[in-house]
Design a protein around this nucleic acid. Structure first.
Length: 578
RNA sequence: GCCCCGAUAGCUCAGCUGGAUAGAGCAGCCCCCUCCUAAGGGGCAGGUCAAAGGUUCGAAUCCUUUUCGGGGCGCCA
């Protein structure tokens, strides 16, 4: 249990003993200002209002009832009825002593752990991955890591798009070329161009367009020639994705891929199940589900179409099949979808239908974790001047390029291979952090300079703070292992840093609850800022007193662990020097 | 027409179940490397939190209306 949760628990109980109704929250938060202590409890005011009692008096009574001696050194009532709490040095010291082994150690995952499906990345294999895929891939991966660290059984699902009409066009184009293996291999080397060429062919030649449509039908019927081409294409495209994942340090592997096509055989059964459940209605020849809670134009019912007039299935059907699979076979307690916010209505419908049909129980939490659209500098959905998109590989190349130039400027004496390594870690880290540090749901504007900034609240700043810790240990000639040194918190900078470190699990708790990794970014930045202040104000290696030196080394060590662990949870690596 | 999301400093954004004097980064100006890495630190300046009402002891946060953006709404995914 985190400090915050423990204080909440005890103060809530105290409020109840002071006369507030059971379940009254104490509303413990980190203090909004340094002068108010470390935490503040705001719950007494609201509770007093309901009881018609003076808020300060209720706060006083609750505080007198509360048993906080082992955690809190000072507590006082302030303003209209805030309870301000200052942690004792013993409490902070205890947390710091157990920091690596307990406070931020990974929670074990057992059979009893909550099972969380994380659906993320899920690119369409028809095209190359571009910058628009960053959000789902990066944020989803960070969330998977954080959930795993906090004791959840995480089931990554990469729901790649490998089925649908555009594959007809691509396969027909491949078929034209398959007489010449070299040309085909060459063309497939660049999926973006391949797609464009196929599309040009499709638009220009009606006969080709017809062949493309026929190909879709043949593919769906399992025509061996089509299937072979399809498999070849999918394999090339998957390998491209995996190369990008490897470069990004994203933990998605082949075993996490559960493609759209994997549900093909379930779709008829899904529709049959909906029929059995009495949910199916035919409308204009299509099979639909209408739910009372969803109304469209003119109060007309809003359909979820699960089967087209021509008998074909839609992505709604596939998503229903996926929910069924995740709940029944994967035994998910919670399913998180890191998918573009434009699909939010779609998910609301699909989730509601899945529950109505019994594909998901009432207990299973189905949560769309929407994210905003990447916009161009004109405020329109992002595209380059030529109308294309920026490929992910281009962005990463540029990131490493700029980072290499910078590290060479800052540290020309480092060996070439070392500078390459640093450039890779720093460049990729900057790109990921630029994405992770923004609120998930907000649209954001793509900008090379914004995404590749190395100053201020960026990954390189955090990585730099980490290298300073490593540098201290390097100079001291000792390994940065955990020691049982008593940590002095006499200096304000020491205390502020200690508090930020100890509060890290509280942030993780909120991130897990809301799926908002930018809160972790923000907290790590606070830690780094606090460390920089500590570093400026508190001499470590040159401290006169050996005990103080050891204490500060120990605090630096905790900082290093926090930064390394926190960055790792975001999927960002560290280096020892930069 | 209906629904969803948004509007906070010049720019990019935080602001967690309503809390005390709305915070960062960048850009601007000033200062700090004989001192543990200046990818750093310190300081200055910068806001009628889109607008108007309302609820509340207390509103950037909740409610209503309006304005301006973005997105979605029957056989694409």
């Amino acid at each position: 249990m985190t400090l915050r949760a423990e204080l909440e628990r005890r103060l809530s109980a105290a409020l109840e003993r002071a006369g507030a109704p059971p379940g009254t929250p104490a509303i413990v938060q980190p203090a909004t200002r340094a002068g108010f202590g470390d935490y503040q409890a705001n719950g007494a005011m609201g509770a007093a209002k309901k009881l018609g009692r003076p808020p300060r008096e209720l706060a006083e009574t609750a505080l007198a009832e509360a048993d906080l001696d082992d955690l809190v050194a000072h507590a006082e009532i302030a303003g209209p009825g805030f309870i301000n709490l200052t942690l004792s040095d013993a409490c902070l010291g205890g947390q710091l002593a157990a920091f690596s082994a307990e406070v931020i150690a990974p929670r074990p995952v057992t059979d009893a752990s909550p099972r969380v499906v994380v659906d993320y990345s899920s690119p369409n294999l028809a095209k190359e991955m571009h910058v628009g895929h960053l959000r789902s891939t990066i944020i989803g991966d960070a969330m998977a890591r954080i959930l795993e660290h906090t004791g959840h059984a995480v089931l990554r699902q990469n729901h790649v798009g490998d089925w649908g009409t555009q594959f007809g066009m691509l396969l027909a184009f491949m078929a034209e070329m398959s007489s010449n293996e070299d040309t085909l291999a060459h063309e497939l080397n660049d999926l973006e161009t391949f797609y464009r060429h196929a599309k040009e062919r499709f638009d220009a030649d009606p006969a080709f367009a017809q062949r493309a449509r026929d190909t879709v039908v043949r593919l769906q019927r399992g025509d061996p020639v089509c299937l072979k081409l399809w498999e070849q294409f999918i394999e090339v495209s998957m390998q491209h994705c995996e190369a990008v994942y490897a470069r990004l340090g994203v933990g998605l592997e082949r075993r996490h891929v559960y493609a759209e096509s994997a549900y093909n055989d379930d779709l008829a059964q899904v529709v049959a199940d909906l029929d059995t459940a009495g949910l199916l209605t035919e409308s204009d020849g299509a099979q639909c589900v209408f739910l009372d809670e969803f109304k469209g134009k003119d109060d007309k019912p809003l359909p979820l179409i699960v089967q087209k007039r021509d008998g074909g299935y839609l992505y709604a059907t596939t998503d229903l099949a996926a929910i069924r699979h995740r709940c029944r076979n994967l035994r998910a307690d919670r399913v998180l979808y890191f998918v573009d916010n434009r699909q939010s209505l779609h998910f609301r419908l699909v989730f509601a239908v899945a529950r109505a049909a019994g594909f998901a129980s009432e207990q299973t939490r189905l949560e769309h974790m929407p994210f905003g659209t990447m916009l161009g500098e004109n405020g329109r959905p992002f595209a380059t001047r030529s109308g294309g998109v920026v490929r992910l590989t281009e962005l990463l190349d540029e990131a490493e390029h700029r980072a290499y130039a910078l590290v060479t400027e800052k540290n020309p004496d480092l060996a070439e291979t070392k500078r390459r390594e640093i450039a890779r870690v720093v460049g990729i880290g900057a790109v990921k952090y630029a994405d992770l540090s923004k609120h998930r749901t907000s649209d954001y504007v793509f900008s090379w300079d914004g995404m590749l900034s190395f100053d201020g609240n960026t990954a390189p700043y955090l990585q730099y703070a980490y290298t300073r810790v490593q540098s201290l240990f390097r100079r001291a000639g000792i390994a940065p292992g955990t020691t049982d040194t008593t940590i002095s918190l006499a200096e304000p900078a020491e205390r502020t840093l200690a508090l930020r470190l100890v509060q890290l699990p509280e942030t993780l708790e909120i991130v897990v609850r809301d799926g908002l990794p930018h809160l972790l970014c923000s907290h790590l930045f606070d830690i780094a800022v606090a460390f920089m202040a500590f570093y400026e104000q508190c001499p470590v290696l040159t401290a006169e007193d050996p005990a103080l030196r050891d204490s500060r080394m120990a605090l630096a060590q905790r900082t290093g662990t926090a930064l390394e662990t926190g960055l790792d949870l975001l999927g960002i690596a560290t280096v020892d020097r930069m």
